[in-house]
């Protein structure tokens, strides 16, 4: 029995009364905190993050920084807290210690929704598209917070992912795995973020599609958008990375340029399979 008596459903799975599909974890009702000035830091700077999901800490003083237009990649063994670190940067878990600043503003107290308005874009690993809606509607929903005309942005995204233009009237759930990831990235780009965060964008897609996706990500970075990415395919990811972080047990183990890490014998032995 969980601690919250309101979440006790006694194992009921009756679909004629309760709809479990699409239920989320994010708290949509929390009031967001304030933005404080924090000059003199790198473009994105998440310093000394300590925290976890209620039970115990997963992050033990993890630090991640990204400069403007840079591609940063977080790699590491399973359970190292890679995704957790990214979620912490995005505000999806409460930090006990540490701070997150973006472009000279301290956003540690902000909810994820508020961070989107501050210029962060996030592509979750799973459930990252609206499957029952068309591709175009997905992009529209991505631009929900924008009050201005977003048609030009949509055209840019169709130029970046031409296949989406052809399929824009099709339900996103009917697309192939790689195409879905393109929709997911496109959706996140609709807010014109300054920092795009991708949680394992190539999970479950074929190697050819993976290369294609990485090419597109490089293209996005060339437009001046910083990229922070968690990846299982460490070798390929580090090849395109300007900066790499190897996390072990929720703390930084190795940091360097992608090329340095690929060349580092210790990193090769421990994480890249020799």
């Amino acid at each position: 029995m969980s601690g919250n008596p309101y979440q006790d459903d006694r194992g009921n799975r009756d679909r004629s009364i309760a709809n479990p599909l699409g239920v989320g974890e994010v708290d949509g009702y929390r009031e967001s905190g304030e933005v404080k000035p924090a000059p003199g830091k790198p473009f994105l700077s998440a310093e000394g993050m300590v925290g976890g999901y209620g039970g115990g800490d997963i992050l033990h003083g993890c630090t991640i920084t990204v400069e403007r237009g840079e591609i940063a990649v977080i790699v590491g063994p399973n359970g190292a807290g890679k995704s957790t670190a990214m979620k912490a940067v995005f505000g999806m878990l409460d930090l006990r210690e540490g701070s997150v600043t973006l472009d000279g503003r301290d956003i540690t107290a902000l909810t994820p929704q508020a961070r989107v308005r501050e210029g962060m874009g996030f592509v979750p690993q799973t459930s990252n598209i609206f499957t029952s809606m068309t591709v175009e509607e997905n992009l529209e929903m991505g631009a929900f917070i924008r009050a201005d005309d977003f048609r030009a942005t949509m055209e840019q995204i169709y130029d970046l992912f031409p296949i989406l233009r052809d399929k824009r009237r099709q339900a996103a759930g009917e697309l192939s795995g790689g195409q879905r990831q393109q929709v997911a990235v496109g959706r996140a780009l609709m807010t014109q973020p300054q920092l795009l965060m991708l949680d394992e964008p190539t999970a479950g897609v074929s190697p050819i599609v993976m290369d294609e996706l990485f090419d597109r990500i490089i293209e996005v970075a060339r437009t001046g958008i910083s990229i922070l990415m968690v990846e299982q395919n460490a070798r390929q990811a580090l090849e395109i990375a300007d900066k790499g972080y190897v996390l072990v047990q929720g703390a930084n183990a190795h940091t360097g340029t992608g090329r340095d890490l690929l060349a580092d014998p210790e990193v090769r032995r421990a994480f890249l399979g020799g």
């Binding site: 699409g22 239920v23 989320g24 974890e25 994010v26 949509g28 994820p112 929704q113 989107v116 308005r117 996030f122 979750p124 459930s127 990252n128 598209i129 609206f130 499957t131 029952s132 809606m133 929903m141 991505g142 929900f144 917070i145 959706r187 807010t191």
Partner: peptide
């Protein structure tokens, strides 16, 4: 369709 993604979309 997807509560979390909707919330993150603002």
């Amino acid at each position: 369709d997807n509560e979390d993604l909707a919330l993150l979309s603002g």
